[in-house]
Amino acid sequence: MAVDKNMKILIVDDYKTMLRIIRNLLRQLGFVDIEEATDGSAALQMLRTGGPYGLIISDWNMEPMTGLQLLREVRADPKLKGTPFIMVTAESKSENVIAAKEAGVSNYIVKPFNAETLKAKMVSVLGDF
């Protein structure tokens, strides 16, 4: 099934620069409906009230709610649990990747990353576009 480039994508990061970078890279890939949150709790609120979202791209290390906590909340919520979730983080220890995988992450990108890697992981999660 073709990927709907009009789907809503939520990007979550506490660094405004990173939000802007991911937004621009997504725009270059043809995605136009992009929303932003600066921590997990704000993201969760948006997911529960403003959805549906076709993809969540989230950082890990944020306060007060981390990306891992957001992932667990999403996977525990019957309405949200099927939403693809890509973690984009500088947390680059294997135990981090394993913890995220056990929590149900769809894919994992280690910062710093490039546009090709972002596209490749989106394709692996959403299908080719």
Binding site: N107, V110, N114, E116
Partner: peptide, 19 residues
């Protein structure tokens, strides 16, 4: 990133260049 990809059981990333 290649090691991460291996943990996800997928092929290495396309494009390369990062890390």
């Amino acid at each position: 990133q290649d090691d991460v990809d291996a943990l996800f059981g997928g092929p290495p990333r396309e494009g390369g260049g990062d890390r």
